[in-house]
Design a protein around this nucleic acid. Structure first.
Lengths: 130, 130
DNA sequence: GCTTGACTTAAAGTTAACTCCAGGTATTAC
DNA sequence: GTAATACCTGGAGTTAACTTTAAGTCAAGC
């Protein structure tokens, strides 16, 4: 799979894919003889993982750290687990906050609904009175 | 209430409070005779609203737009409602994505748990064999 | 009356995360 | 064989959202 196919498939721009690789968020992607990226299944797996974690708000730095640990092998299992737990906890906190804000928005939207209806009623009244 | 009290109360830096005001996210905050900010209840209400919405991911631009509409009065009710609906929908989508990622992280953490236990077992085995 | 500390402003600087650009190479289509 | 297209790299530029700085004002304590 070449870079534009991967870009299409995951909805990540070509530039961003190269940027992630340069920054060490992806292990160096497989190349063909002439140096052109040819993403393996595994490469794609990483892309998907990064995309998912980025969209949940994990930073480039955090992901680089995770992947660095990953490539150091089994002796970093505990560290990786701890990193994931820390990020999970942060994510959970963000989610809770956002959930509350979602409800607040819904409440506000309903209030607007009512106020708009009210305004229209008053408009009609005024017209009648003329 | 002066700026540092408001900063304390809402956990927003003094600089950020001034920045929000300059950017038109807050209506111009009340000042005393010598030009020093003296936040009214209402000012605080806006601060709290902005904090909440920012933490849910609404952009500075979007919030400025909302507040601008707000100060144009009743004739912008429908526009404001539409803006809130659009933001609510975006937020809902983000939430769903993040929820899925949270579950993925939990799953991954569990897998690590198991792998770590497994690794320890193998270590013990090796020690026994020596 | 002067020092200290908290406030003021406008403007410049920083950071994270991209995004674009210039100059070059490889493959395919004619 | 040359034109078009898709890729490559290193490095510069951009954007959103702050954050810092410089230069100044003001009230309180000594």
């Amino acid at each position: 799979m070449n870079i534009s196919q991967v870009s299409q498939k995951y909805g990540i721009s070509i530039d961003t894919l190269r940027y992630y690789e340069k920054e060490g968020l992806l292990p160096r992607v497989h190349r063909n003889e002439s140096g052109i990226r040819d993403y393996t299944e595994q490469d794609c797996g990483w892309v998907e993982f990064i995309k998912c974690m980025r969209s949940a708000g994990l930073s480039i730095d955090t992901l680089r750290e995770y992947i660095t640990l990953y490539f150091k092998g089994n002796r970093t299992l505990q560290k990786r687990k701890n990193l994931l737990i820390a990020e999970r906890d942060k994510l959970q906190a963000r989610l809770k906050e956002m959930q509350a804000t979602l409800e607040r928005l819904n409440y506000k939207i309903n209030s607007y609904e009512e106020r708009i209806v009210q305004c229209e009623k008053e408009l009609l009244k005024k017209r009648k009175n003329k």
